[in-house]
Design a binder for these strands. Structure first.
Ligand SMILES: [Mn+2]
Ligand SMILES: [Mn+2]
Ligand SMILES: [Mn+2]
Ligand SMILES: [Mn+2]
Lengths: 220, 220
DNA sequence: TAAATTATTTAGATTGATCTAAATATAAGA
DNA sequence: TCTTATATTTAGATCAATCTAAATAATTTA
């Protein structure tokens, strides 16, 4: 059995691989907030286990086996999040940190049962897809709100990070998955966006927030 | 924050303290299946943290603070077990090992919510009382089936261990909490019991099993 | 009570996960 | 291309949690 630490590394590499071509030691280092030397050290171990491949001084990639393991951990994480929100009534801002611990529980009975009770959900409460039992995961189609153009009408389909801080901010602004927003103006000075909300009131979001919101274009 | 390891030590000492006057290093060592030297080493650390007291070469005791922490971990463990059986439909034989990991999750929101959804249960699925938020725990009244006398009518109110192995054995014999059994005969050779079950059929249980079953006397 | 047994402590070592500092390699910029 | 900046690796250290073996204390038995 892999330690929680090792599982967190696999998950980190997997997540980074989803949005980048190349995953550098430094990326993993920043993502997990450990030193590059520590990551390097762990990569030696993961190479021995045949879960990652890496040539000296080159980026890392998960092997097929490593990717499968990572996907299974993420699957457990997202099923747990979904269960906690849908069946227990916890807010989307509270479930990520709990799932961060539950994902390491070794019990197919538990996660299969949650999956069943949820009727096999495809997405987690933050809009990310849940890998299936084979580790297959649907490729999401979105762009970041920070990339939207003036005049476009967009709908929130996911968030880049599931931190309590961001999600409580969104709660307060009444923004949730499915919320539609029209981009009225992009401030050239700080890249903040002026948005028209569903109730016709307007709202300004900083570029930091806009960089964390996954949206799709919708018809007017 | 205490590590999972430390929390498991606190829990072990607490559980042993429930059924023994004195808790020796050796008892903890056997309970957690680590060497006595390891336990000794950990006791030095727990003493520094003021969670246990121990004079050199003497038994260990939890401090008030240590006991409270232990009770909170056990509370989380038992609420989780109850939730898994009652709300998710898992069998009593499957929940202990899951709870062993869930008990370390640091989230009052999660456990308070489970407690609420369960309507504040007093006992876990194995018949053990759930400590309240102040760490108070009701003293159970029972004796082991192995201590029962010939002719007595007893009812199962709990188990000494929650291992999958024992509980699957009990499932197979149709024995669950509340099951009544009459002691027909005690074999002097191996201390096995011949029992009359509710459906009038008879059953022999080894002393090993009888030592794991908590019963109370019931009226005939 | 002396000897034997059992329990506890100490000493020294190992493993996993981490760090900082320094060395080395790669990539970017002038 | 040469220099500079950035990324990776190596070296050496620390801390938590464990071990075995040996020393010491406490308890039990004869
Ligand atoms: Mn999450
Ligand atoms: Mn995790
Ligand atoms: Mn249990
Ligand atoms: Mn545990």
């Amino acid at each position: 059995m892999a330690s929680n630490t090792i599982e967190n590394y696999l998950k980190a590499i997997y997540s980074l691989q989803q949005k980048q071509e190349k995953v550098n030691i430094t990326d993993v280092s920043k993502h997990l907030e450990v030193s590059a030397a520590t990551v390097n050290n762990m990569m030696q171990k993961l190479k021995k286990m045949k879960w990652v491949k890496q040539e000296k001084y080159q980026p890392v990639t998960l092997t097929v086996e490593g990717e499968k393991r990572a996907a299974m951990i993420i699957r457990k994480h997202r099923i747990a999040e979904m269960y906690l929100t849908e069946k227990m009534g916890l807010g989307w801002e509270n479930v990520h940190s709990i799932a961060e611990e539950m994902e390491h529980i070794d019990s197919s009975i538990l996660f299969d049962r949650m999956d069943e009770l949820l009727d096999y959900p495809k997405y987690d409460p933050h809009g990310s897809p849940i890998p299936n039992k084979d580790g297959k995961i649907v490729k999401m189609n979105f762009h970041l709100l920070s990339q939207a153009e003036t005049g476009s009408l967009v709908q929130l389909v996911g968030v880049e990070d599931s931190s309590k801080e961001l999600l409580e901010f969104l709660n307060q602004k009444m923004i949730r998955l499915g919320t539609e927003m029209k981009v009225l103006e992009i401030a050239s000075f700080d890249k903040s966006l002026l948005l028209e909300m569903e109730e016709k009131d307007t709202l300004v979001l900083s570029s930091k927030v806009c960089n964390a919101l996954r949206v799709i274009e919708v018809e007017k």
